[in-house]
Nucleic acid binder design. Structure first.
Lengths: 132, 132
DNA sequence: TGACCTGGTACGTGACACAAACTATCTTCA
DNA sequence: TGAAGATAGTTTGTGTCACGTACCAGGTCA
């Protein structure tokens, strides 16, 4: 298996794990990502779009559906009358914590195929590849 | 960065590369995967569903849209009057070849952040993680 | 203060996922 | 050998989700 195939297959495998973890809470991957971003910040819609790489109209829909489920809330921006800030609700926070714990568990399970030295090595190499 | 974060971020990064490569040919990631599967086989719909991890009704839609674009064709199964076999058309084959070359290029570009020894090492470790 | 820009929403369109139901075909069994 | 049950694929319904365009309210600047 060459490096390209390895990266592509690994990527889909991780996506499947994320999808399965999310499905247990009736959450899509993009919803998981949205809630994850909101753990430690209350961004505006445009900033969310940048993080998620999505059009602002998509963010409007995504946030509306999450709001409808009581997972997030919009509040008027104190700096700009046009803008809103998006924040997790307590229910949303609980869900993202559970979701993340599950993703951690499942991916940690996967990484157990490597021994501790290999894991450390893999993490170091992967970190070089990851955009920052 | 821990192993879980590294895997998740790397996964999304690769997905973005795939999406960008696909977008250049007006193809979604799942369409790329479909065409990729059809490079070396002519499966039935259920087999395609297994490969892609999708419901058979989703496969019906996916294949219909690809067929509509002239990328694949259905033919009656010689073994089973109910079934169809799905195959690439010449246009589909050309597109999947171009698409794959592009994915290869872009991911190879990413892996250049690692030197040759690191790349070999990464591939070996990633291969352990990939389901077979 | 008016022109221009921006943040976010609304609307339209199409892809895409799953579930349930349906039809034609295949298999099994009495 | 015909009936019953299972299967392959499609159809329909529903909802998510993506982008593009247009719109409106608010902000900025000359």
């Amino acid at each position: 298996m060459n490096t390209v195939d390895a990266l592509v297959q690994l990527s889909f495998q991780v996506q499947r794990i994320l999808a399965e973890a999310g499905a247990e809470h009736d959450l899509s991957i993009v919803q998981l990502r949205l809630l994850g971003i909101l753990r430690d910040r209350q961004p505006g819609m445009l900033e969310l779009g940048q993080h998620l790489g999505l059009d602002k109209s998509s963010i409007t829909g995504l946030v509306s559906r999450a709001e409808k489920r009581g997972l997030v809330e919009r509040s008027p921006s104190p700096h700009d009358g046009r803008g809103v800030l998006v924040a997790l609700t307590p229910a949303g926070r609980r869900l993202v914590e559970v979701g993340e714990a599950q993703i951690n568990r499942r991916i940690t399970e996967l990484t157990k195929r490597l021994n501790a030295t290999q894991r450390k090595q893999f993490t170091q190499l992967a970190s070089v590849l990851v955009n920052t």
